[in-house]
């Protein structure tokens, strides 16, 4: 049976989403997107220059990709909503990744404002992907507000520290009925694989690909790692044990009657 991720009425095969910041050129970005075969790509609207005299980032995103504008720069729900509407008007479609950040030092999101923005935008028909700190009650509120998925951070944006929030994200995975997508902080394909083994629906990666010495090969490496992790999850990973143990030390005396 084919393993399909369904978000916003679309069927997605590739569970690696890619962010488009920090690349050395649009051309390298394009080659990385092509090599990874990513289907969902996020773009900061603040970087989009429709009337560009030189280049427009949107021209470098493969046509088959679903574009999700992100609201980078928004400090509250109102600003995020306005940016999302501008993105739609600029032809970026109705997928939006909400980023509401009031903290430029750690780039950690404001969950409360994110819920408010999600509610407004979902009502307006946007497919809303909110970036959040992994918190169960907030994730539930995001579901009620109409989010299409929740996107908890693995570790702070750009930190390359890996899946540090695993314990909390695992709670979301078991309790939340919409896709849980780890976004931010994954510095190596092994971290992306770990997220997928833990049961995440997808991961979003940007920095680790963009600043790699060879972003094109790194994009492919992430794509393969995500596939491997997903396959492992679907096929059921045996629980790991710290020590070797006899098969039934306590109940071995019982005989079949």
């Amino acid at each position: 049976m084919e393993d399909i991720l369904r978000i916003g009425g679309r069927e997605i095969k590739n569970r690696l989403f890619i962010g488009t910041g920090k690349f050395s050129s649009y051309n390298v970005m394009k080659l990385a997107l092509e090599a990874s075969n990513a289907e969902i790509v996020t773009v900061a609207l603040r970087r989009v220059d429709e009337a560009s005299k030189t280049e427009n980032i949107l021209d470098y995103i493969p046509k088959r990709c679903i574009l999700a504008a992100n609201t980078s720069g928004a400090r509250n729900a109102d600003e995020a909503v306005r940016i999302a509407r501008l993105a739609k008007a600029a032809g970026c479609g109705n997928w939006v990744k909400i980023e509401v950040i009031q903290d430029n030092k750690y780039l950690l999101p404001d969950n409360l404002e994110t819920v408010k923005a999600t509610e407004t935008l979902a009502k307006e028909g946007f497919i809303v992907l909110p970036y959040m700190s992994p918190d169960l009650s907030m994730a539930r509120r995001l579901v009620d507000a109409g989010a299409a998925a929740v996107m908890p951070l693995g570790s702070p944006i750009g930190s390359n520290r890996g899946f540090k929030t695993r314990e909390l994200v695992e709670i979301l995975i078991s309790e939340i009925k919409i896709p849980v997508i780890v976004d931010a902080g994954l510095g190596a394909p092994s971290s992306a694989c770990e997220c997928m083994e833990a049961g995440c629906a997808a991961v979003l990666v940007n920095t680790a690909i963009a600043i790699a010495e060879d972003p094109v090969v790194m994009a492919k490496a992430f794509s393969d790692a995500v596939k491997a992790g997903r396959m492992a999850y679907v096929s059921g990973i045996p629980r790991s044990e710290k020590n070797a143990r006899a098969s039934s030390p306590l109940t071995g005396f019982l005989r079949n009657e």
Partner: peptide, 11 residues
């Protein structure tokens, strides 16, 4: 390096 000509948005 990518020259960034636009990285802001007046809303």
């Amino acid at each position: 390096y990518q020259p960034v000509l636009k990285d802001w948005l007046r809303i």
